[in-house]
Amino acid sequence: MTAADEDAAGSRAGAGPDSATPRRPDWSAMAIAVILLGIAALVAWDAWTLKLSPTYARVGPATAPYVVAALLAALAVGTAVMAVRGGFPAREHAEVSPILWIAGGLAVQMLVLGTAGFSIATGLMFAAAARGFGQRPLWLSFLIGTGIAFVAWVVFAMGLRLSLPAGPLERLLF
């Protein structure tokens, strides 16, 4: 999504669907329509590949997917119409870097969980998430996050036998 689209969406705020002046379509909303249509096609294609043996129910495994695909396709058309008419509500400017920090933190946690163990992996995620909200410095949040995660690990993994992966830190102390 570009800044121009953002502005376009913003400037159209409050424009009714029946307003007379011609307007540029809302490209982001149009993209949603395309995505919906893509999901509809995927669901229908997957249903088409299912093996249909005769059943007493006559409603087999493919029926529900076709219904959902049809619904999604209809909604895609509706969304496209609304995008052209500018019927979507105004969107405010989104800050991208906090999202990258948080999503990145979750991704890092996911990737190092097996090797670094629960506390360190979660501490990294915690630090990145706090950084996404503007908290500095990173190392302090990391220490705090690892500390909280470690206490949680002790309570849940040792106390309640919930299986949370252990890493060097956990093995050092237990």
Binding site: I102, G105, L106, Q109, L113, F118, T122, M125, F126, A127, A129, A130, R131, G132, F133, G134, Q135, S141, I144, G145, I148, A149, A152, F156, L162, S163, L164, P165
Partner: peptide, 21 residues
């Protein structure tokens, strides 16, 4: 806010990992 939301994510991932690691 930084501590609150980082904490929410910490416990949300704890729940998810604990239920299905």
């Amino acid at each position: 806010r930084p501590w609150l939301y980082a904490g929410i994510l910490l416990f949300a991932t704890l729940g998810t990992i604990g239920a299905n690691p």
